[in-house]
Amino acid sequence: MTTDRRVLVHPDKDSLAGAVAARFITKIIDILDENDEAHVVLSGGSVNTAVLAAIRNSPAQNNVDWKRISFWWGDERFVEAGSSDRNDGQAREALLDHIPLDEAKVHAFASSDEIPDIDEAAASYAAELEAAAPDGQRYPRFDIMFLGVGPDGHIASLFPGLSGITETEKTVIPVLNSPKPPPLRLSLTLPVIRSADRIWLVMAGSDKASPLGLALAGASIEEVPAAGAEGRKRTVFFVDQDAAAEVPENLIAPSY
Score class of each variant (00 low, 15 high):
residue 108 A to H: 15
residue 215 A to Y: 05
residue 40 V to F: 10
residue 173 I to G: 03
residue 109 F to I: 02
residue 244 A to S: 09
residue 235 T to Q: 12
residue 69 I to M: 04
residue 224 V to A: 02
residue 194 R to K: 15
residue 78 F to R: 10
residue 186 L to F: 12
residue 71 F to P: 00
residue 60 A to V: 08
residue 150 G to A: 11
residue 141 R to H: 12
residue 209 A to D: 02
residue 159 F to I: 09
residue 234 R to N: 07
residue 200 W to S: 06
residue 28 I to E: 01
residue 204 A to I: 02
residue 92 R to Y: 14
residue 133 A to Y: 03
residue 198 R to Q: 14
residue 177 N to Y: 07
residue 139 Y to V: 08
residue 50 A to T: 07
residue 229 A to M: 09
residue 212 L to G: 09
residue 34 E to D: 15
residue 113 D to Q: 04
residue 125 Y to Q: 13
residue 19 A to D: 02
residue 250 N to R: 14
residue 142 F to K: 07
residue 17 A to L: 00
residue 59 P to G: 12
residue 124 S to N: 14
residue 223 E to R: 04
residue 13 K to F: 02
residue 67 K to P: 00
residue 180 K to D: 10
residue 203 M to P: 00
residue 73 W to R: 11
residue 38 A to W: 10
residue 162 L to Y: 14
residue 38 A to C: 13
residue 2 T to K: 00
residue 240 D to L: 01
residue 10 H to L: 14
residue 54 A to R: 04
residue 52 L to T: 00
residue 9 V to E: 04
residue 176 L to A: 13
residue 16 L to T: 01
residue 101 L to G: 13
residue 63 N to E: 15
residue 128 E to H: 09
residue 11 P to E: 03
residue 130 E to C: 06
residue 221 I to W: 03
residue 137 Q to L: 14
residue 250 N to Q: 13
residue 205 G to Q: 03
residue 206 S to N: 13
residue 139 Y to E: 11
residue 53 A to S: 10
residue 239 V to M: 08
